[in-house]
Structures are given as C-alpha cells and as structure tokens.
Design a binder for these strands. Structure first.
Lengths: 113, 113
DNA sequence: TATAGTACCTTGCATTATACAGTACCTTGT
DNA sequence: ACAAGGTACTGTATAATGCAAGGTACTATA
C-alpha cells in the first residue's frame, strides 16, 4: 500500500476512533488495519505526539489477556482537531477525485452552439 | 491546507494531467492549484523524479509569453503507474471515508431478532 | 521449571514528499 | 533602463511513516 497516501490520514483515523470510544494502541492497530495497513511502530509514536499536543490523555487499565493496557481518551482539543481534519479530508479527497476523474470545474458554462 | 494529505497525491495528479495532454510545469501548477494549493518549488523536483523514473519525457518548445517551455509527455510506464495509482487512491480514499463516516464493515450480518 | 507464544508498549534509524525561499533567465511594456 | 510577469531550478528544513529490534506481562504446554 502506498505509504505516502497515509501521511496525515492516520492521525485523522485515530482521532475518529477515539471519538467513538476509548481505545488502547494495539486495538487501534487492529481496527485501522482492516482498512489501512499499519503496524505498531507507526501508531505509538503518533499517540505519543497526540498526547504531547493535548489531543488525548491516557490511563492504564489491567487486562486479562496480557499486560496492562494503556487506554487513550480524546480531549476537547482533540475533538476540535478531529472535526477540522474530517472537513479538510472530505474537501481534499473530493477535490482529488474531481481532478482525477475528469469532472473539470468549468466555471462559466457558456453554450456556443 | 494540510500538507500531509498531499503526499503521494501530487504525483497522481501530475500523471493524470499528463495522460490528458502534454503540459509544462508552470501550467500544471496553475491547473492543480485550482484544487490543491501547490507551488513551483514542489512540482519541479517531482517532475525531475518522474523523468528519472521514466514515467515522463520532456521536450522544449518556444513560447510567446516568456522563456521556452519544457513540456512533459507521459510514457507507457507512466500510464501504467498512473493506472495503479488511481486504483490505489480510489480504494484508499474509499476505505478512509468508510472508516471516518462510520460505515463499519460488519462482515457476518447475522440477525439476532 | 523451562520454553514458547501472544498481547502489548517503546525506540531508533532510514525513507520520502512536500514547503518555502531564493536564484536566474526570457520577454514585453514604459 | 526598469518593472513585472512567465518559466525553470535548487537547497535546506520539516514531518510522517516503515521497519526492525527489544522489552515486559501473562498463559499454556512440555
């Protein structure tokens, strides 16, 4: 899968997931991997950054299947950012789709027949 | 505009444009900027790379409005790559849209009523 | 008990595309 | 001669991801 396409989108995906419910890293890798292939080494640094930027907070919780899990919870700032990112993404992806699928924006639809 | 989203997509856009008609760099900046804000300093290195990878070839042509223009023409390899990229993009963007707009893929639609 | 396997987190280095600013050349109009 | 705009190019910085490796906790099994 094209690495470059993912740039910036992973952050969006993580925030969207966390806006639905608290998650731990490993869980998000699983969830997101259904759509976009990623690995742990990618998501943890991202989570660290989001935490540093106050988009999320984290708390530990014990697990029955292994070591304690570090859950992440989205903050108000994070929700805000998520909203912006979703809007940007929608606009961006629509623009690209228009561009590559030939729906060229002819502003000024003058018939010359 | 979110810089990260553009990663990889610009290459796609350039190849798509060139698959329609030969263009020169400055022209493509204009064209693409209608949708995605970019500048010359971004596109020329990209074109250079595409040329190095044999996706495009270039030729000079005089202009009446300024210095000669360097036109780029897509090659068979380039067309191939464009096709792949378009497919990848379509799949990728659809996946992301599903993910962020909650259409979660419930494989196994068992009714429990 | 030792070992392997899996769930889970972390870090470091390499890769790669874009941003921005600056340079330079050509042409036309004043 | 100068300004302005069209056209091409380059260098340095930024930033997100990939991959590989390592570490801890728990569970199962030999």
């Amino acid at each position: 899968m094209n690495t470059q396409f993912k740039k910036g989108v992973l952050e969006l995906c993580v925030l969207v997931l966390l806006d639905r419910k608290d998650c731990y890293g490993y869980e998000m890798v699983d969830e997101i991997s259904k759509t976009i292939s990623i690995s742990e080494g990618t998501i943890y640094p991202l989570l660290k950054r989001l935490k540093k930027e106050n988009m999320v907070i984290s708390y530990l919780k014990e697990s029955q299947d292994g070591p304690p899990r570090k859950y992440y919870k989205i903050t108000v700032i994070g929700k805000d950012r998520k909203k912006n990112l979703v809007e940007e993404w929608d606009q961006f992806s629509m623009g690209v789709n228009n561009l590559i699928h030939e729906k060229i924006n002819n502003s000024g639809d003058i018939n010359d027949e």
